[in-house]
């Protein structure tokens, strides 16, 4: 089943978006850093903070919403859903295959972001200091941290049948996420809201967001464990939904 998903993924139109979004983040970050070089404390940390500023708050999560919606779109066309229900595989296989296929494209997006940041920092801005390999680590962490949102968006796209509606729900979640990571009162929410987990993971070691935590086991482990736990819980919810919700 995973192989079928990967074939669908390979031939889908998501690649331009998955490529353009992180490249746009790197480009805008580079321009912004170059324009304000005198105001920002120089170096890789400041540059990376500029790159993930908008990307981490909103667009990484929205991108995930789009990728998940794309992977489910084919199943809601024609009679594909009925065909899917006749499969002899267990529902959990389908849910996991969709999540895995979406996660592959999310990993691609993050790889583009990290490579783009490193290339731009080293060759365009010619930043001092060695190449910061922490960026690669943050990229890897953010893929795991994205899992809850991948599962939630996949679930929404499965249930709502519409392409754009889950993206709107994701945007509302992002807004809540921004509020939860920037305000003190809503801070607890930022530990469980998938969009906020993304923001926090991408801003590990960043200088733009206060209280974003650093790249230490104390800050990283809770994010990873909550992400995995939440993702597992949502997968269970997805399996239950396939069993009990009557679609069409």
């Amino acid at each position: 089943m995973l192989r079928a998903e990967l074939i669908k993924l390979r031939r889908s139109a998501i690649w331009p978006i998955a490529l353009a979004l992180p490249l746009l983040a790197v480009t805008t970050g580079t321009i912004n850093y170059a324009n304000n070089a005198d105001m920002l404390a120089g170096g890789w940390a400041a540059f990376n903070s500029q790159v993930v500023m908008f990307y981490g708050l909103l667009f990484f999560s929205l991108g995930i919403g789009l990728l998940a919606a794309t992977s489910w779109r084919a199943e809601h066309r024609g009679t594909n859903w009925n065909l899917l229900l006749t499969t002899s595989r267990r529902p959990v296989t389908l849910v996991l295959a969709k999540v895995a296929a979406t996660a592959v494209s999310v990993a691609f997006m993050q790889a583009v972001l990290v490579v783009g940041t490193l290339v731009s920092g080293a060759f365009v801005l010619r930043l001092d200091g060695g190449v910061p390999w922490q960026l690669v680590l943050v990229g890897a962490i953010s893929i795991v941290a994205a899992l809850p949102l991948v599962v939630v968006q996949s679930l929404l796209s499965m249930l709502l049948k519409s392409f754009a509606a889950p993206v709107a729900v994701c945007l509302a979640g992002c807004v809540l996420g921004v509020a939860s990571v920037t305000s003190v009162g809503l801070r607890p929410l930022s530990y469980v809201l998938p969009q906020a987990i993304n923001t926090r993971a991408l801003n590990l070691g960043s200088t733009a967001l206060t209280g974003s935590g650093s790249l230490t086991p104390d800050d990283v482990l809770p994010i990873l464990l909550t992400a995995l736990g939440l993702a597992a819980a949502c997968v269970a919810l997805g399996v239950a939904a396939i069993r009990w919700v009557r679609l069409r």
């Binding site: 979004l21 908008f54 929205l62 789009l66 392409f163 754009a164 993206v167």
Partner: peptide, 12 residues
């Protein structure tokens, strides 16, 4: 994906 994707890049 094209319409909504372009909307998202536009928002950026």
């Amino acid at each position: 994906l094209v319409s909504v994707g372009i909307g998202m890049l536009g928002a950026f």
